[in-house]
């Protein structure tokens, strides 16, 4: 029984203690928005011009996860905009609903990672300071059909989930480990949804753009 309590403490108690109320509120269990309603103007790239932040230890991995989640959210917001501007033809509602819902969860994930940083006295990650940012935005710009947006999502989720999973194994901080353990599977569920909509219900293989990011991908 002691161990059971210990397992629950790791996932609930210590997460609350380390992340604080703000982090938990920023990452609720509420279902994602079913319709595109979030800030249509938000996907504009936010160039990072600040000096490199001296994150130490686990903080660097947490910052990487924050930036990766933020990039995923930003790409999905951009995809929703692209779906609405007519250049992709008629984009089915199920596709835009997916993009909006998954993007909303990634926004919450980024907020939760940042709350972990600020609770530890480190600055939150602003923007999407990653070496792959321009490549990923260019891939979104090349989308020519609704299915291209779904293929992009398969890559985004593989990148995000893989990045978080890789850090999860290495974190020594209980709060960071618990957060990573509960967020990586959500990316897997996003990826499964995109694959299903693409007609690959048993799983779609991501491209090279779906590779997990290492710590050296963080530019802030």
């Amino acid at each position: 029984m002691g161990f059971v309590l210990s397992r629950r403490r790791v996932l609930l108690g210590s997460a609350a203690g380390l992340l604080g109320v703000g982090a938990l509120a920023a990452c609720s269990d509420d279902p994602p928005a079913g319709t595109p309603s979030a800030s249509p103007g938000s996907p504009a790239p936010t160039p990072t011009t600040s000096a490199r932040v001296p994150y130490v230890g686990d903080q660097r991995g947490v910052a990487l996860c924050a930036a990766t989640s933020a990039l995923a959210a930003s790409l999905y917001s951009g995809a929703v905009l692209a779906a609405g501007d007519g250049r992709l033809g008629q984009v089915p509602g199920v596709v835009t609903t997916f993009l909006s819902g998954a993007g909303a969860q990634h926004t919450e994930h980024a907020a939760a990672w940042n709350a972990l940083l600020t609770a530890a006295g480190a600055p939150a990650v602003t923007g999407t300071p990653l070496t792959v940012e321009s490549d990923r935005r260019a891939a979104l710009g090349r989308a020519a059909a609704p299915t291209d947006l779904l293929a992009l999502a398969v890559d985004v989720e593989a990148m995000t989930g893989g990045t978080v999973a890789a850090r999860a194994a290495e974190f020594t901080d209980p709060g960071a480990a618990a957060l990573a353990a509960t967020l990586a599977p959500v990316s897997a569920m996003h990826g499964a949804t995109a694959a299903f909509l693409l007609g690959r219900p048993t799983g779609a293989t991501p491209s090279a753009a779906g590779a997990p990011l290492g710590l050296d991908a963080l530019t802030s």
């Binding site: 269990d29 994602p32 928005a33 199920v94 909006s100 353990a181 569920m189 949804t193 299903f196 909509l197």
Partner: peptide
């Protein structure tokens, strides 16, 4: 895709953090 209900786009990931 055009026939799928919009809600199918999010029904597969009901929780922001995996329970």
């Amino acid at each position: 895709l055009a026939s799928l209900p919009g809600g199918i786009g999010t029904v597969g990931f009901p929780d922001t953090r995996f329970p």
